[in-house]
Structure formats: C-alpha cells, structure tokens
Design a protein around this nucleic acid. Sequence first.
DNA 1: TGGATTTGACCAAT
DNA 2: ATTGGTCAAATCCA
Length: 323
Amino acid sequence: MNSSWHENLPSSRKKAMDELLRGQESAAQLKLVINQSIGFDESMFVEDLVKKVMNSFSSVLYILNGGESDEVASQIPLVGSPCWDDRKTSKDSGESTGKSAAELKVKDRRGCYKRRKSVHSRTYDSSTLTDDGHAWRKYGQKVILNAKYPRNYFRCTHKYDQQCQATKQVQKIQEEPQLFRTTYYGHHTCKNLLKASQFVSDPSDHDSSILISFNDSTGEHQVSKKPDNSLLATYQTVKQECCNREDSMSMPSYDPATYYNNQGSSSDYLLSPADHDYMSRFDSGDVISGVNSSCTTSSHSLDVDGIMIESGDFDDGVFGFDL
DNA sequence: TGGATTTGACCAAT
DNA sequence: ATTGGTCAAATCCA
C-alpha cells in the first residue's frame, strides 16, 4: 500500500473521494456523539444506521478507487496459475507427465506465494489466546531473526473447501512474554456462520477497555485490551494452538478478535466499554455482527478494508471509526 | 482412519 | 546470502 493511488487520480474523482472521506469522518464523529447521549438500546439501532452509512461511503470510495485492493488481489491466486489451489490436480498432472513427483512439486510451488509487505494487516495484542470466531489451522512455525519466540502461522480451515484466504500470525511479544501478538491478513470469505451464535462476550468485560494503536505509515492498527482479563464463555474453533513448550507459545484459548476495520491518526484511542461492545459486535462483520454482512466476499467487509488500508495515506484523523 | 500439527525444505523478496 | 512465508511429508491424536 502506498500513497500513489490517491495522488494519481483525476482531480474530479479525487475531489469526490475527498468529499466522501469527509462525509465518512462526519458519520464517525456523529456515532461517537450519539453514543454519549442516548441509551444502549437506541445506541444499537443508531450504530447500525451509522454503520450502513459508513459502509456506503466506503463502498463508493472503493468503487472510485477501482474496486480493487492490494490485499485481496495479492492473496487470491489466479485461476490457472501454479498457485491456484488444487493440489490434487497438480499432483495428478505430475504423474501423467512422467517426471518425478518431487521435481514437479517443486516446480508447481514456484511463485505460489509472496511476502507480505504492502498487504494490510490488523494486529491485536492479548494476554489470552481465545477464540476469534473462526476455525484456524496451523501450517507453519518459524524462528524469527532477533526474536526470542517463534512465529506461528495459521490459515483458515476453509482455505481449500471455500477458498478462504484469511491467515494470521501469532507470536509472543519479546518485551512482554505474557502477551501474544496476533496479526490477521486477508478476510474470511468462508461461510462460517456456525460461530456467530457462539460469539458471546463476557459481561464482566465491561469494566475493561481497549487500547487501539494507529500507525500511519504502515496502515496498521492494534487493539489491546487493558486490562486483559476477559475470557469468552465459549471457545471452540482453534484446533491446536496450544502447546507447553517453553520456547513456543502457550495458547490455552483464543480471544475473539476485537480488532476491527479502523483507521485514523497515529493516536491511541482509549475506548469506553460501550465502544468495546460496539467493536465486539461489528468486528469481522462476518461472524459477529450479523447486521448486514455475512462472511463472504461481498461488498462491505472487503471494501471497507480496501479503503481503510489506503486511507492511512491521508491526513491524520481523516477517519474516525470505520464500521 | 481422517483431520490436525510438526517441521524441514522450498522459494521470493530483500 | 539471508530471511520470512508457505508447502507438504511425517507424525500425532481423538
């Protein structure tokens, strides 16, 4: 992600996008004002409306921007390319050509992945590893240079049956070994609706707050709970992210990711419990909100992130909360 | 026995 | 040449 997309646009389109961004910002501010002035029930209704408004902004921005995001484009293999994931097919074709399976395997894998650099990510720190509502499968662990703890790689369980491209990395934070840093890449395009009903936040958690860190240069943000003493009532999806080895991770359970599509200035926002609720409900729209998006590639979840990735290149604070 | 994890190897980016 | 992300065979486990 870089700043060129915005600079290179025709001036009329750029103006339109700037205007939309202002409208989006205003909607975000409106939400905050409303949250402070009305009751919980009304708040939920209003938040829903604001979310729809902001999604509309995001969708239009997305369309004006060409309807494509680096993230999505870079992570979905092209049909017919070596990465197009039908490993059975590639194996079968390998046998039919007479070349050794090993040789072909190596060739088939060429160019099948790229390093993440410009890809948007959401980083979330937590002292507990609890369920984020999705089924993950570990596919790798790597010792990282100058890092005391290894990095663990997870992909969505439905990568192959539903072509879901979501992945995440989990690593103990060296400075704070009691904390885990989870970085999410891509979006779930799987229909994993079973999880939604099980996604219940702990009422006791209302006393806690969340610290979100925005990083303008990278487009990243972090959401950390402080204090992190919450555990969800139900955890069920992470298959085996727990082990007892000292040099690895201790992952008793998984926290529902309270990361969410957000972007703004390089400031830290200390959210109120109400905001936490809000985030819990709308995060990952797919499984949590159930308001207007499902866990599909359609529209908003993707669009929003696509836009928000790039919005970091705008002036600080252009975006408040992206819903 | 099928699905999940482990772990060494492969490969692209730097 | 080094490093990080991914693959896939071997292994584990319910």
